[in-house]
Design a protein around this nucleic acid. Structure first.
Lengths: 193, 193
DNA sequence: ATTTCATCCTGACACCGTAAAGATTGGATG
DNA sequence: CATCCAATCTTTACGGTGTCAGGATGAAAT
């Protein structure tokens, strides 16, 4: 039997992985620091040294979450040239992320626990925002267009997570994507001549 | 001194009021059943008899929340005749509610704690949805228009609560309303001829 | 007057986050 | 190589939380 060494080796990384698993299984509202430590096979006070308190761990998880968020949009945008098509795909990626990692989505957008003053988190959040700005600028849109696209994408994703869009949940996948496309197309700036 | 009688008289109502105060001061993530009981001047186990567990109390608060939500939209819509203007005002009321009662907003739309199978809660939620459907129908819109208006309104409100719309938060009130109007106008169905 | 029963309280338990203090170990320093 | 140091992890402890079991109270019904 491999008795566990006193020093883990890469506990910080292990705790982040355990934290993501905890979020996926129990959600934000069921998230427990002690449970995360148990997942990593470590004492309940071990996380403190790496993350301070539970807010510190959630801040790090949120920072990672923004990367996943970004990646989900990039995956959808890949291959598309037309700026309007790219913007629509970004919205689809937005929904992909929310569906695939609901708790992470809520952690990022609807929780007060992550420390919004944390520099790394701010950088990650700003990057996601700038990505959106780039999409809208490529279409020749203004600030209202930015908010419109963002709000529509976010609204669809958040309402879907909340189970409020039951009519959409009862649709087959292709029809659902078509519906999202129809909605997002409405909020794009007028096609440039 | 009025020593408290053993029987409260209307504890259920008092607990609901205390629960709203607790939400307003501590938010969902800081919500504590024992603290609510303390606010109502009652033992920590007293709420159990009226609401079962904490989920039961939050379910009742969410049901009440939908009424406040409805009222906020009605207040904005009052006096407007034109269907498109009414729809835009509903969106402004949506934001009003989120701003005035952020924790209640999150409880309704982003929490898993309320029991979504509760009949009273379902009725309240359905009423809010049907109100939206009525607005869109009056404009001759279809299902995509419903989702578009709802998602845009919800997205703006939820992002604003999350502090993500900093550019909007730095605007004077009239400009902010103008911005919301500009965004919402984009998602309305084409004006009927 | 007695019984009944909803209401409310007390006490207990397991779980949680956090802090303090001790154990262990890898690595730097001599 | 021997020693010390600092980082890492554990143990223990404390107050707070939700929930359950059992007892106390008192209003209403018999």
């Amino acid at each position: 039997m491999d008795d566990k060494p006193y020093h883990h080796g890469d506990l910080r990384t292990a705790l982040l992985a355990a934290g993501e698993a905890e979020l996926a299984e129990r959600g934000i509202e069921g998230f427990s620091l002690r449970s995360v430590a148990k997942r990593a096979g470590v004492s309940h006070a071990a996380p403190a040294h790496h993350f301070g308190d539970v807010g510190g761990l959630l801040t790090a998880l949120a920072t990672e979450g923004f990367l996943h968020f970004q990646a989900a949009m990039d995956a959808r945008e890949a291959g598309a040239i037309d700026p309007r098509e790219r913007a629509v795909r970004a919205g689809l990626g937005y929904l992909d992320f929310a569906t695939a990692r609901p708790a992470l989505f809520r952690l990022i957008f609807s929780s007060a626990k992550p420390d919004t003053a944390n520099p790394a988190l701010q950088v990650a959040a700003e990057a996601a925002y700038l990505h959106l700005v780039g999409l809208v600028n490529a279409m020749g849109g203004d600030e209202a267009d930015i908010i419109a696209l963002w709000a529509a994408s976010h609204g669809i994703a958040d309402l879907a997570l909340g189970g409020k869009l039951r009519m959409m949940h009862h649709m087959p996948e292709p029809a659902r994507e078509a519906m999202v496309r129809a909605v997002l197309t409405r909020v794009l700036p007028k096609a440039s001549p």
